[in-house]
């Protein structure tokens, strides 16, 4: 089955990203295909490489980056949500006159159309959040 995931909560505050990660990993190991992981609302905070959680805790951002590399996942941060919350890649930083970017490896920033497309192209779209 081809699935996509929407994550609508930030890391650590909420379990959404953890559960989505475990779900995605299990589904991929089970032979399913992941079309896209879309991060919306505070979910875009899962894509900052500046997160530095304590060493004895899981690193949610790095875990997504590693899973993306292993399975060629398409991790998309919503551009409008990311702009509001200060998540930027080099292009976005330049466009908005910021002196730094903070996007983590394996993530990209794009529009909400990517979420709608995920709904159209996937057999199932699963939301993790409140």
């Amino acid at each position: 089955m081809k699935f996509s995931v929407m994550i609508s909560e930030g890391p650590y505050t909420h379990q959404a990203s953890d559960t989505a990660y475990n779900f995605t990993k299990a589904a991929l190991e089970d032979g399913h295909e992941c079309f896209r992981i879309f991060f919306y609302h505070d979910g875009v905070n899962n894509g900052t490489r500046l997160a530095s959680p304590p060493q004895d805790d899981r690193n949610i951002v790095n875990r997504w980056s590693a899973l993306a590399k292993e399975h060629k996942l398409d991790l998309v941060l919503c551009v409008a949500a990311a702009q509001r919350r200060g998540i930027a890649d080099a292009d976005e930083a330049k466009r908005n006159g910021k002196n730094a970017d903070n996007i983590a490896p394996g993530f990209r920033i794009s529009g909400l159309g990517q979420l709608i497309e995920a709904g159209i192209q996937s057999d199932r779209l699963i939301t993790f959040g409140d």
Partner: peptide, 30 residues
């Protein structure tokens, strides 16, 4: 496509950002 709106308009951003999805999604002729 069904957009389910369950939260109050202010106090959290969910309603506003949900509306943004609906408006973008409208262009996809679903």
């Amino acid at each position: 496509f069904l957009y389910v709106n369950r939260k109050a308009p202010y106090g959290t951003i969910y309603a506003l950002e949900a509306l943004e999805v609906v408006l973008i999604g409208a262009a996809f002729e679903q």
